[in-house]
Design a protein around this nucleic acid. Structure first.
Length: 210
DNA sequence: CCACGGATTGGCT
DNA sequence: GCCAATCCGTGGA
């Protein structure tokens, strides 16, 4: 089993900052999930920022509800929601409780626990090339691969079950931005950030204006 | 490769 | 009722 230096865990202060600043620095960091005594991990390669009060596409835009209350728990919390009747999506909460800001994790390049992820996604251990590409290149796929569901909603990212390890920051010219995917409000805001030329980015083609 | 439509259910109007 | 921060299979170029 791969071992981790958990002293390298990102501290609370990392998360208690502006959502866009955290989003860009989250690229390249290592997402870790402990499941059945095994560490599943991967490099974050794509995310989208949802900026609370000023962002009509944010779940928190109209204030606190049962569904989005974790977005108001302050930086360093995992927000998991259920969507389209079938899928879960995981977010990193940032800033302070009143901000209601979060970052959707959209793309991860797998590092450890790939067989367990393959089992979760395709119910087998050996994957074809096309299956490997589709292992964790999307927010719903990531939750399926990392065994994340509603029971993980509200987990502290300073816990020992789900956390993020520090790693190098990427240079500006390696970070691409675009409109966010799959939303109908605030469609023009360029708040999707992803690593250039990484095959685990969910949509290599940029979303068109509708 | 790309576009399109169906699946499926909890939350909110 | 309506709709959603998605995914997958299908059919065509």
């Amino acid at each position: 089993m791969k071992r981790f230096n958990t002293s390298n865990k990102l501290p609370l202060k990392f998360y208690q900052r502006n959502v866009h600043k955290v989003a860009k620095e989250l690229l390249g960091k290592i997402f870790v999930r402990k499941f059945n005594c095994e560490y599943l991990s991967g490099r974050i390669v794509e995310i989208e920022a949802y900026d609370g009060k000023i962002d009509m596409a944010a779940h928190s835009y109209n204030g606190k509800t049962k569904r989005n209350e974790v977005m108001f728990k302050g930086g360093g919390t995992l927000y998991v929601y259920f969507t389209y009747g079938m899928y879960f999506c995981a977010n990193v909460v940032t800033g302070y409780p009143e901000d209601g800001c979060a970052i959707l994790i959209r793309g991860i390049e797998p590092i450890a626990g790939i067989e367990s992820m393959s089992k979760a996604r395709f119910n087998k251990l050996e994957l074809s090339d096309s299956e490997q590409k589709k292992l964790t290149n999307g927010p719903g796929k990531i939750c399926q691969a990392f065994y994340i569901d509603k029971s993980d909603n509200g987990t502290s990212l300073l816990s020992d079950t789900i956390f993020i390890l520090d790693s190098k920051n990427y240079d500006k010219n390696e970070i691409m931005t675009s409109r966010r995917i799959g939303i109908k409000k605030s469609v023009d805001l360029p708040w999707r950030y992803f690593l250039k030329n990484n095959q685990y980015v969910s949509n290599l083609k940029l979303p068109n204006k509708k």
